[in-house]
Amino acid sequence: MRYLLKNLAFVLTFGLLSVPVYAADNPNLLVMGEDADEDSVPRNSRVFKRVVYALQGQMNYYSFDVYDETYVTMDNFTQGRVRRSDAELFDIARSVKRPPIDVVVVFTMYASAQQKDHTTKIKARITGRMINAKSGKFIDTFEVDSGQFWNAPNECSRECILEVVGDKAKILAEELGAVLAEKLDWLVEGQMAENGQDRSATNDMITDYYLIFDGFSAEDFMDIEEYLVIFSGYKSHRPTEQRHTRSEVLYRSSIGTAKLSRNLKKMLGELDMRATVTFEGNTFTLKRITRRGEKRKPSVDGGW
Rank of each mutant, 00 (worst) to 15 (best):
L184S: 05
W304K: 08
T276M: 00
C156S: 10
Y210F: 09
T290G: 12
E175D: 14
L5V: 00
Q79E: 05
G57P: 09
A133M: 03
K134D: 13
K170Y: 12
G256S: 06
D117F: 15
A9S: 12
W150G: 13
Y22F: 15
V249R: 00
K6H: 05
L286D: 03
A36Y: 08
D220L: 00
T73D: 01
T120R: 13
L187R: 15
Q148C: 02
I122M: 10
P42A: 11
R2K: 10
T108V: 03
K235V: 14
M1V: 12
P99V: 02
L180V: 08
S40V: 01
H118D: 02
S217L: 12
S112W: 12
T73V: 00
G196M: 04
S232T: 07
Y61R: 15
D272F: 01
N76Q: 12
V249Q: 09
G190L: 13
Y227E: 02
M205S: 12
L264F: 11
R46Y: 05
D272V: 13
F221D: 10
Q114L: 11
N7G: 14
S135V: 11
G15T: 04
E38Y: 13
S45L: 06
Q197L: 13
V82H: 08
V66S: 07
S45I: 04
V66D: 09
L180Q: 15
N7L: 07
G33Q: 02
L5K: 01
N60A: 11
S254M: 06
A23Q: 12
K97T: 00
L30P: 06
T283D: 03
L8R: 00
L184F: 05
L268N: 10
G281H: 00
I101L: 05
L228Y: 10
V96P: 03
K123L: 02
Q115R: 08
N132Y: 08
M1F: 13
T73H: 02
T127Q: 09
K168P: 09
D145M: 05
M205G: 04
V104S: 12
A169F: 05
S261H: 09
D145W: 06
Y53H: 13
K266R: 06
D301N: 01
A23I: 11
V300G: 01
D301C: 03
G166M: 09
I171G: 11
C156A: 08
G177H: 09
R288T: 03
V277L: 11
R94V: 03
M59P: 05
G177T: 07
K287Y: 13
A23E: 02
I212W: 02
V82G: 10
L17R: 05
R98I: 02
Y67Q: 06
W304H: 07
Y209Q: 04
R129G: 06
K97A: 02
S247L: 14
I161E: 07
G147V: 06
K287A: 09
T70W: 15
K97S: 06
N7C: 06
L55H: 14
F221I: 14
R129I: 03
I230C: 08
E280I: 06
D65N: 14
D25Y: 07
E38T: 14
D39M: 08
I161W: 11
H244M: 14
A173S: 04
D140C: 02
L286R: 03
Y210L: 15
H244T: 09
L268W: 07
S253I: 07
Y3A: 08
G177Y: 09
K183L: 00
V96Y: 08
L29G: 07
R98H: 15
D208A: 08
